[in-house]
C-alpha cells in the first residue's frame, strides 16, 4: 500500500525521471514488441483476409491429426496441444528466471534459464517434426483430371473438398501407371506397403480394381494459400523462438560469467523475458488461427 501511495504522490510528468517508472531499455523492448505485434498481426490478418475470400477452406482437424509414433491414428489437436503446453511451461520458467534475477540470485537465474532453453528447443523440435510430416505426407488427390499423391507444400494443398465417386472413376482411367501402382500400394488408410502383393506386375485394369478408392478419402486439391500462410507464419514464429533461444543462451553464458552480478542488476534478463513471453503470446494467436478455428 505504501508503494501505491507513493505512486500517486509522485509528479510523473515533470521531467528528470521516467514518467512510467521504467528504465528506458524496458520501455524500448515494450514498444519493439508492440511493433512486432503489428508484423504478426499483419500476417495473421492477411491469412484471415484470404480465408474469407475463398469459398472453401480445409478443416484444421483433418490437416493436423498426426502424432509422432502413433502411425496413422486420427488424433486431431493432440500434437499441437503438446506444443502449446511446452511453450506455456517455458514461459513459466522464464518468469521464475526473471524473478530470480530480481533477487540477484545467480544460481536461480541459471537454473530457470536452462529450463527455458530446453523448452524452446523442444518446441522447435516439435515444429520441425510437424513440418516434415506435412511436407512428406502422402495424400491421394484428384487434380487436373488425374489422381496424384502429394504432400502439403507452398505450391499444392491436398485438403480440398472430397471428390465425387464419378469424378474419381473418370480420373483413375487417366492416371499414369506409376501413380496407380503407388496408389494400390498405399492400401486402405494411406498405409503404404500394407499389402504384400507385387502390384507392379498387375495389369492396369487389375491395378484399378486393387485400389481402395473408399479408404483413400480422395480429395480435390485445396487452396494453395493454406500452405503458404501456414509455413510462412509458423516459420516466422519459429524464427522468433529460435532467436529467443539464442538470446537466452547468450544470457545464460553472461550470467555464468557474472556479467550481471558485476553490473549489480539483471535488467537484461527482464528484457529477454519480455521477448520470450511475447513469443508465447504470439503462439496463442497462431494456435487460435490455424488449429482451432
Amino acid at each position: 500500500m505504501a508503494t501505491t501511495a507513493a505512486v500517486q504522490q509522485t509528479k510523473w510528468w515533470t521531467g528528470g525521471k521516467s514518467p512510467f517508472n521504467l528504465e528506458y531499455g524496458k520501455l524500448m523492448m515494450w514498444y519493439f514488441l508492440m511493433s512486432d505485434a503489428f508484423t504478426f498481426g499483419a500476417f495473421l490478418i492477411s491469412y484471415g483476409t484470404i480465408r474469407f475470400s475463398q469459398n472453401f477452406w480445409p478443416d484444421p482437424n483433418v490437416v493436423f491429426n498426426a502424432f509422432p509414433g502413433a502411425g496413422h491414428a486420427n488424433l486431431p489437436l493432440a500434437f499441437v496441444s503438446v506444443m502449446t503446453f511446452i511453450l506455456i511451461i517455458s514461459s513459466v520458467t522464464m518468469v521464475l528466471a526473471v524473478h530470480a534475477g530480481h533477487n540477484n540470485d545467480k544460481q536461480g537465474v541459471i537454473k530457470w534459464l536452462f529450463w527455458t532453453i530446453v523448452g524452446g528447443a523442444a518446441f522447435l523440435g516439435c515444429q520441425a517434426w510437424e513440418w516434415h510430416h506435412l511436407i512428406t505426407g502422402k495424400h491421394a488427390i484428384l487434380v487436373n483430371g488425374q489422381l496424384d499423391i502429394v504432400g502439403q507444400t507452398t505450391r499444392i494443398n491436398p485438403w480440398g473438398d472430397l471428390a465425387s465417386q464419378a469424378d474419381i472413376a473418370t480420373a483413375i482411367q487417366n492416371t499414369p501407371r506409376e501413380t496407380l501402382v503407388r496408389l494400390a500400394e498405399m492400401g486402405g488408410h494411406g498405409h503404404e506397403g500394407a499389402a504384400h502383393t507385387n502390384f507392379a506386375a498387375l495389369s492396369n485394369a487389375d491395378l484399378i480394381k486393387a485400389i481402395d478408392v473408399e479408404g483413400l478419402h480422395i480429395r480435390e486439391n485445396g487452396p494453395v494459400a493454406f500452405g503458404g500462410y501456414f509455413y510462412g507464419i509458423t516459420g516466422f514464429h519459429g524464427f522468433h523462438v529460435f532467436s529467443g533461444v539464442i538470446i537466452n543462451i547468450i544470457m545464460l553464458i553472461m550470467t555464468q560469467k557474472d556479467v550481471f552480478a558485476r553490473r549489480g542488476h539483471y535488467l537484461m534478463i527482464e528484457k529477454t523475458g519480455l521477448y520470450w513471453h511475447f513469443v508465447d503470446l504470439v503462439w496463442v494467436f497462431v494456435f487460435l488461427c490455424f488449429y482451432l478455428i
Binding site: 512510467f20 514461459s91 513459466v92
Partner: peptide, 30 residues
C-alpha cells in the same frame, strides 16, 4: 474460442510480462 484466447493473452501480458504491475499510464500506452 476467440474470447478464451484473448483471456489467455490478457493473463500472459498482465502477469507474466508484469504489465499489470506497471503504472496506469504505461498500461495505456500499450
Amino acid at each position: 474460442v476467440c474470447i478464451l484466447t484473448l483471456a489467455k493473452a490478457y493473463y500472459i501480458v498482465s502477469v507474466f510480462m508484469h504489465l499489470g504491475d506497471e503504472i496506469r499510464n504505461m498500461i495505456m500506452t500499450i
